[in-house]
Design a protein around this nucleic acid. Structure first.
Lengths: 242, 242
DNA sequence: ACCTGAACACCGTTCAAGT
DNA sequence: ACCTGAACACCGTTCAAGT
């Protein structure tokens, strides 16, 4: 059974918090939150559970680290509207749409992210995730000409909308996936739409009236429409004269 | 040990899905998601796990039912703006603020709700939770004079914002509680604010600039300010002439 | 300082058996 | 139809022991 020189050439790199978090993200991407287990993490990293606990306090911290890593990557890509030279390069509105879409796309690429963001922000709002997002949005809020005493409220409103909407998008994508390999999101939205049309007309007139729109809507477009609603409201409060 | 007539008068009511869900909500309220266990549920209801599984498919379904029950209660109270007589009774803007606040308050009364809403909507968007919220908001969106082809987008934007913001509010309340029994949310916000002020000035200029506002802000006010931002944006799109 | 791996307490879920 | 409760597979976490 050659317990010896097997795989001697490709020496396993030393365990590190970084490697553990990376493996965690991969497991989460591959099979969701329930797929992240110390057992499979242990196999994947070819160690024992004790080794992992040396680098990471517990599973909650591991999930937080995974969330933070992904958010950091999402917000960082594209340098948040400030390009190398330092010129503004885009209108503040576009900057906000940009950050929003990056977070939106991140939740699409990592379906576990949305629920995890809610949990992380909720259990540990003093953590690193909120500042990352706030900062990504905030620079543009300032550029928008919002008076300083409205900065926090404005940036928070945008952040809350983004997180809420991104979560809902994952919902649709994931549920479509759950319908089967050959089903697409159209099939799934059709199912939801049909269910809504079957609701009690007395109790759910609006939802029924809107069922058709739910079936044909584009998530990305709808997401941006919501951002624009907020932008309009924000700009109405302090008309830019420049 | 008198196995007999003990508690014969207060005969245990028959088990039912309703009783199970009620007990689940109580456990969740008392000790969070980790406090809801088939073991303690079993003790509380004086049965075996098999009995519970007769009424409920699994833990996920139980969590979904608990979430739905709480949302139903929150949205129903106050009859969603339509009083007995049938008169409008309030401006549509106030109706929206009303529904929003009810959901906001519900997440405050049931700290597990926000994260659970994200999970439920995400795993099962065809469920009952989304229609309930949509309907509560939708009636007022219609009354606002939004053209029909904008109904879904508008109501969805409001729902997403509400869910995102409510989640963040829980965050602050819970974290304050975690600081200790005598700590209030002011103590907690102070801690977060201080942490933000310690961030790298180059990486986090906005978050640092906003740290003081974070310390003194009122969650409820900020929540409503966001709703109003959206309302302004919505009304700007289709000026009411009435 | 970092890692091993057996052991522990606890979890959701099943199922043959009862009434 | 509804309930019992022992049993199963699996989970996060600990810790004495190694290097």
């Amino acid at each position: 059974m050659a317990t010896r020189t097997r795989r001697s050439q490709r020496r396993t790199e030393a365990l590190s918090r970084e490697r553990i978090v990376k493996a965690a993200v991969e497991l989460l991407d591959a099979s969701g939150e329930s797929g992240l287990t110390f057992r499979v993490l242990t196999e994947r990293l070819e160690t024992g559970p004790g080794a992992i606990y040396w680098h990471v306090a517990n599973k909650d911290e591991l999930l937080a680290a995974a969330t933070d890593a992904v958010v950091a990557g999402a917000v960082a890509t594209g340098a948040t509207g400030i390009t190398g030279a330092g010129e503004p390069s885009q209108e503040p509105e576009d900057g906000i749409r940009d950050v929003a879409l990056r977070l939106f796309d991140a939740t699409e690429a990592h379906p576990w992210l949305a629920a995890q963001l809610a949990t992380q922000l909720s259990r540990n709002p003093g953590g690193t995730v909120a500042p990352r997002i706030l900062e990504g949005i905030g620079r543009h809020v300032r550029a928008l000409g919002v008076p300083q005493d409205g900065w926090f409220t404005t940036a928070s409103a945008l952040m809350h909308y983004i997180l809420g909407a991104a979560g809902q998008n994952v919902a649709n994508t994931e549920s479509a996936r759950a319908l089967g390999p050959e089903a697409d999101r159209g099939d799934f939205l059709g199912t939801v739409s049909a269910a809504w049309k079957r609701l009690d007309p007395d109790d759910y007139p609006f939802t029924r009236a809107v069922a058709e729109q739910a079936r044909t809507h584009d998530d990305r477009e709808q997401f941006l429409a919501g951002v624009d609603l907020l932008l309009t409201g924000i700009n109405a409060g302090h008309p830019r004269t420049a």
